[in-house]
């Protein structure tokens, strides 16, 4: 993957524009996966009217619209295609989840969507499948500073 400082301005603008949508699509995927875990482990609450599905649908609507409206640079065309495909598959997974309790019709498009998101994360910098910032055991080390900058 190209380092961030070698990205052209147009692509950098695209990254800033779509990062939020990427994170929201990732969140929708997580919500659907969570719903399936509840379902597969036999939890009573895993019904099509689970509030998380409503929350996922709302998040999805805005994210999908944002992806549609994004203006990719030439360098970002493939990335944008991954986002569009992820968005389409998540839409299919959501519809399936709200139509019934069977796992496969949700899981199959959800897996595809996740792969598209992974591909997108690998294609351009600035997109992470797992947010590690402030996560335990993987803390970002601050860049070295001159001593006086550390004084309070």
């Amino acid at each position: 993957m190209q380092p961030l400082h070698k990205i052209d301005d147009e692509t950098a603008a695209y990254i800033l524009e779509t990062r939020r949508q990427f994170e929201d699509l990732r969140q929708v995927a997580a919500q659907l996966a969570g719903f399936l875990v509840l379902n597969a482990s036999g939890a009573d609450t895993a019904s099509p009217d689970h509030p998380m599905l409503a929350s996922a649908a709302e998040l999805y609507r805005d994210a999908a619209e944002g992806v549609q409206c994004a203006r990719p640079s030439r360098r970002a065309l493939l990335h944008h295609r991954f986002l569009l495909e992820a968005s389409a598959d998540l839409g299919a997974a959501l519809t399936a989840a709200r139509n019934g309790l069977r796992v496969d019709p949700v899981l199959l498009p959800l897996r595809r969507a996740y792969r598209h998101l992974q591909d997108a994360a690998c294609e351009l910098p600035g997109f992470e499948m797992v947010s590690f910032q402030h996560a335990c055991c993987a803390a970002r080390r601050a860049p070295d500073r001159a001593p006086q900058e550390n004084r309070i």
Partner: peptide, 26 residues
Amino acid sequence: VWAMSLERRFRWLMLGIDPADLLRAV
């Protein structure tokens, strides 16, 4: 799963979690 249903401003609660792990758990 509950944390995932919260709004975006609560996303700190989700840090360090990978959706793929949940898919594998399914």
